[in-house]
Design a protein around this nucleic acid. Structure first.
Lengths: 184, 184
DNA sequence: TCGCTCATGTAACATGTTACATGATTAG
DNA sequence: CTAATCATGTAACATGTTACATGAGCGA
């Protein structure tokens, strides 16, 4: 149930409305945890009932600003420091596992697209870090900042891997009837 | 619905029983996609009904060996090359986003544990690559091999990032009453 | 024969998605 | 006044988890 903890984490930085949280998750969703508004609103209601968050302001047309409570902060910390809670579900990572199931040409195209994608992401991140520089300079641990910096380390590494994988593919061009089960 | 595609990918390598697939997912689950047997068995049944896989052997006590069909292979390829299908849900990655919500001491402990963990994983992977060397030498694209090599690129990068983050923490030791909302 | 691992499954529940529904505010 | 965006929600459905249930085979 990590949506809950994602919301607690965001609200711990700054009280926010469901709409704002939804927007934040559009960022987070790309790298860490995907969630849509239709999931977020009911969860906020349940969290209110559970005493983890509270409505601190209610504006026109039902717009509610939520803030984390003491209990919520405690739960967030408990979860952050609990090493047990691990689940990954990443379609992208799963595809990496299964590249071998593609025909060599498909695999090559896949890896090339992946490399291009990595380059795009890197460019976008750098722009983002430039742009948000003001806001983030003061606070290296701001949500997003840490994650962006992390991507700056990780993306070049996965790019190198993809290049390596591409070389493997070219080096071990499929020999007809070689005997592996990979062909369709 | 990527469990389905994970299963197709594994079965494309080699026919297997539900039990064997469950074991495979214990590996995959660590990095890419988590799934448990109680999810896998019903899914295999549904995939059989959908004609994506078929039972190729039935042994004692209901032990069934599944293989992917032509339709299954087509579906696997479609999914592999479909760039749309992206969702990430990683508790570990989410935590990275939220380190800023921890007290500096907790954050330091968190990052140190993370670095240790990275070292352990690296050691384990290297052992695994040594051990499986025979099997994998012939086939650089074997499931697992690619993923393991990828981790070999990525883990040192995330380790570096963690060290950087730790330095940030030490450099920007929290000044009392500084005014951010991060304190509990 | 006792306990472990192999091996498969179901049922109740929790979580997450897609499509639907509604209406306020604001910029042009 | 009109279209886009803001803003919140529900309902039907799909997916995933936990606990329960069963029993075969095998090694000590």
């Amino acid at each position: 149930m990590s949506l809950r903890h994602g919301l607690l984490g965001l609200l711990d930085q700054k009280p926010a409305t469901g709409y704002e949280l939804t927007k934040s998750f559009e960022q987070i969703g790309q790298w860490a945890w995907h969630a849509s508004h239709s999931h977020i609103y009911p969860e906020l209601r349940r969290m209110t009932e559970a005493g983890l968050v509270e409505v601190v302001e209610e504006q026109s047309r039902g717009r509610k600003t939520y803030a984390v409570t003491q209990a919520g902060r405690a739960e967030l910390r408990r979860w952050m420091l609990d090493p047990a809670e691990e689940t990954v579900r990443s379609a992208a990572a799963l595809r990496m596992f299964l590249i071998g199931s593609l025909e060599p040409d498909d695999a090559r195209a896949f890896l090339r697209a992946y490399i291009d994608n990595t380059d795009d992401n890197l460019a976008r991140l750098r722009a983002q870090l430039d742009e948000a520089g003001e806001e983030w300079r003061a606070d290296p641990l701001a949500v997003g900042r840490l994650a962006a910096e992390r991507a700056l380390y990780v993306l070049p590494a996965v790019r190198e891997w993809a290049v390596w994988a591409l070389e493997q593919l070219d080096g071990s061009e499929r020999v007809e009837g070689e005997g592996t089960s990979r062909r369709a």
